[in-house]
Amino acid sequence: MSELRNLGYDAVTGKRAYALTEPGGLLDTMANVTALETASVLTALVGEVLEGGKASDAELAVFVPALFESLSEVVNVAARVLDAGE
Rank of each mutant, 00 (worst) to 15 (best):
E3P: 04
R5V: 05
Y9Q: 10
Y9I: 13
Y9D: 14
D10A: 06
D10T: 05
D10Y: 14
V12D: 14
V12M: 12
G14C: 11
K15M: 15
K15C: 13
Y18N: 12
Y18D: 13
L20I: 08
T21Q: 14
P23C: 12
P23R: 15
P23N: 13
G24E: 12
G25K: 10
G25D: 14
L27C: 05
D28N: 09
A31M: 13
N32G: 14
N32Q: 15
N32W: 14
V33D: 13
V33I: 13
V33N: 13
T34D: 13
A35D: 10
A35N: 02
L36N: 05
E37Y: 02
E37Q: 11
T38C: 03
A39H: 05
V41Y: 07
V41L: 08
L42V: 01
T43V: 00
A44G: 10
L45R: 10
V46A: 03
V46N: 02
V46E: 04
G47D: 08
E48C: 06
E48A: 10
E51K: 12
E51C: 06
G52D: 11
G52T: 01
G53E: 06
K54V: 00
A55C: 04
A55V: 00
A55R: 00
S56G: 06
A58P: 00
A58D: 07
E59I: 02
E59W: 06
E59Y: 01
E59M: 03
E59K: 01
L60C: 04
V62I: 15
F63L: 07
F63Q: 00
V64E: 04
P65T: 02
L67S: 06
F68D: 11
S70E: 06
L71T: 11
S72Q: 07
S72A: 09
S72Y: 10
E73Q: 12
E73I: 09
V75P: 04
V75T: 08
N76P: 03
N76Y: 07
V77M: 05
A78W: 02
A78D: 05
D83W: 11
A84G: 02
A84W: 05
G85F: 03
G85I: 09
G85A: 10
